[in-house]
Structure formats: C-alpha cells, structure tokens
Design a protein around this nucleic acid. Structure first.
Lengths: 225, 225
DNA sequence: GCTCAAAGTTGAACATGTTCAAATCCACTT
DNA sequence: AAGTGGATTTGAACATGTTCAACTTTGAGC
C-alpha cells in the first residue's frame, strides 16, 4: 500500500493541488463533511486522480499529520535553541503542538477517532505510520538531550517515547476541551509538564533504581518497537 | 437519538433476532465484513427493520458492549465472592473482561474507535454514556471494597475510576495484541495488576500524602464527572 | 366484527468511499 | 514527424451505511 510518488512535474502539481484542497476543506467543513468528490472538484481534478495519489481518505489524514509535524518542528526551533530548562522546553513543545493543531480543532475529533482506530493504517502503533512516529519521538529526544538534566541511561532511552505518549494524552484532552479559548488545556500543560519533571527527579533517586528498571522494562514491552 | 424500544411482543422478537444475527456474524466474520444487509438477511427481516431498532451499525456495537458487560459481571461474581486479596481480585476481573471479549476481538477494534471518538455519544467522557460507565466503575468499587486493603479516603474515592481507566488501557493493548493466543495480554495483566497494588502501597505512605493529594486533584480535574 | 391509530415492515433510493479498465498525455527515440 | 511506453487522467460502476415514504399488521375500544 505504498503511495506512488509523482514522477513528473505535472504529477507533482496534481498531488499538491489535491492535498491543498483537502487542507482547505478539512479546515472549513471538517472531516466527515469533506467528501472525496469535493476534494477532487476543489483541486480541479477527477475523483480517480485523487485516488491515484492518495490510496484512501485516511492517507490524506496521514499527510495532514505529516504537514502538522513540519509546522510544529518549525514553531519549536526557537524554544529549543534558547531554553535549557527541561520543564520549560517540554512546556514550549507541547504548547506549540496544541497551537499548531488549533485551526483543525473541529476536525481533530474525527481525525482522532480515525487515528485511534486499531484497524486504521493511520493508527500510531501501525507499521505504516512508523516513519512519522519515529520523527516525533526524535523531536522529544532533542527536547531531553538539549536540556541540562542528567538522567540514568535506561531512563534517557525510554523517555522520548514516553513524552510522545504524553503529547498524545494532552492532544486527546485538547480535543475534548470545550473551555473558552481552550484555557483548560493550557493550564493542564502547565501543571503536567511541571509534574513530569518532578517525576523524573523522583526516578533519579538511587533508592528507586530497582523499581525504575522494572517499570521501564514493562513500558518497553508495551510500546517498544 | 434515543433508541425506540420495542412496544410489542413481535417487536421484541425482531429486535432480538437482529441483535442475535449481529452477534453471530460479528463473531464469525468480524465487523467490517458484516454488512447490515447480511445481518437483516440472517435475522429474517428487511434492511429497513434493522434500522428501526438500531439507528446505526455503531448502535449494534454499543449493544454488544452492554451485552459483554453483563457477561463480564456474571463471570466475575465467583472471584469477587471468594477472593479477598486486592491483586488477585483485580487480576481476576481484568482477565475476565479480556476472556469475555475474546470472541469479538475483531469487533472490539470498531468498538474502541467508536468509543474513543470525541464526537460520539458513546465516548466514555460523554454525558450520555454515563449509565453504563457508572456501572463499570461500580464494579471496580466492588473490587476495592470487597478486598482487605485499607486506603485513605481520597484515594479510595478516586480508585474505581482509575481502575476503569486501567481496564481501558488493557483492552486497547489486547485489541492491538497479535501474539499467539493473546498471551502477551495475559502476561501484561499479571504484571500490571501486581504493579497497581504496589503503587497503592506506595501512595499509602504518609510521606507522600501531599503528592498524593495533588495527583488526585489533577486526575479529578481531567476525568472528573 | 369493525375501525383506526400505533407499531412494525419494506425495499427503493441516496451518499460516499473505492476500484478499474480505458482514454489521454507527454517526453523521448528513431 | 511518427512511434512508443510509461505516467496520468477519467468517469462509470460497485459496495455498503443510511434514509424515508408507503404499506401491512396488530390489538384495543366500540
């Protein structure tokens, strides 16, 4: 089910037009109300052409995720360059993902259910989404590595993946958040990013070495590659 | 979108036939391969009749969810009557939910994505799904209350809901589990049910009183009623 | 037994994701 | 200029969840 990449200039244009149309319509109407026919019309191509570049509607969603990840990475660069305190880095990165996704909040519900669907090719634990998943995890590795905290090796190795899970949790809360200006989500980010760092300090205590190892082993067996 | 309950004997028969057919076909073919037309045929009614009793295919899944909860409660009664050790009670209840759902492993994917959908009335955090959710949480209250552990009041109050979340986590793992006979899930249950009880012991320590209160407050603000 | 309103039943029609074989385009070769 | 083969485009056809207006059955009240 690999997506055939365009091999000509013309093909690239078509692909870009289709994805651009999907972006516009997803943002304006939401996921369900955006039909593949509408996307094709808006892009100025035929229905069949859309399927030539995106084997399914889900694949358009996957592409949207890639797109949002690019935006996120760009938005986050200044913070990561300037800030050394882990809590601040983490807070900045999580805030940024929420703000980046904000234009798609109304859509995000539908997207999330697609993404959470174990049968979906877009499911974060699915093989096909591994490349993107690895990129996001790499971003969190950078969050940790560029900070001034020192961590035991085993914890440092597992942490990026745990932070990726943390991001998913926050995003789910954000999707459900109906508070004005999504303030509750921002508060939650403040509280939990602080909490995460405190937990790390705890896990650093030599007394808890055994417990930590056991917990990390368990986590690895759950979300390990 | 309340489901119209049957008002005659004939209606009850039809509804039961439709749900029974759905059970059979879901089990035999899985969710996607079971069409509404096939369900109607197997039940000996017309397509339109199915929609008279179940407004959507998702509602059949929701009914399955209720059905499985009944089976689960029945399966769990002996363990709860006999066993007093919390870890054992918890392990028994979680094992039971997995075993009860096993024949519908494929359908569970659909169920989960429906349930996780923030827009869905079936979403666990949605108001309309409160009755069933409360029943499940009540079951976990029984797991705790019938055990021989003593807990601080604030923790005892929050625990059933946390265990409900724990169950959801295990079920999500189980859905994704492709290991032979789903052995990995059973192992995970053994490890984590033990772990949960150890964490409780930890939370019981007077030293951690403040941290516990803060964590519980945070959790309440996230999954509170 | 007749009436009638409510309950139940039906299947055609619709919307939309997806497939596919045929048509068209185009850069390159000869 | 003609030919060629792969890339691209097309729209009709299909599968399936869902809707709906018309039809049938049922049973209570007379």
């Amino acid at each position: 089910m690999a997506i055939a990449p365009p091999k000509t200039r013309r093909g690239e244009n078509s692909r870009a037009a289709i994805f651009g149309a999907a972006l516009d319509l997803f943002r304006e109407r939401g996921y369900d109300a955006t039909t593949m026919r509408a996307i094709a019309d808006w892009a100025g191509v035929s229905l069949g052409s859309s399927y030539h570049y995106f084997p399914s509607k889900d694949h358009l969603v996957l592409e949207l995720y890639r797109h949002l990840h690019e935006l996120h990475r760009a938005a986050v660069a200044p913070v990561l360059a300037r800030e050394r305190d882990l809590a601040a880095r983490l807070r900045g990165v999580i805030r940024a993902i929420v703000m980046t996704c904000e234009p798609y909040h109304d859509v995000a519900g539908a997207l999330f259910s697609t993404v959470a669907d174990p049968r979906s090719r877009v499911n974060p634990f699915h093989e096909e989404s591994k490349p993107l998943r690895d990129e996001v995890i790499a971003l969190y590795a950078e969050v940790v590595n560029g900070s001034d905290v020192r961590l035991p090796d085993d914890l440092a190795a597992a942490l990026p993946r745990l932070l990726w899970l943390y991001q998913m949790g926050i995003l789910y809360f954000w999707i459900l958040d109906r508070s004005p200006s999504r303030l509750r989500t921002l508060e939650l980010i403040d509280e939990t990013s602080e909490l995460v760092v405190q937990l790390l300090r705890l896990a650093n205590l030599p007394v808890l070495r055994r417990s930590r190892q056991r917990a990390l082993k368990l986590i690895a067996s759950i979300v390990g590659d």
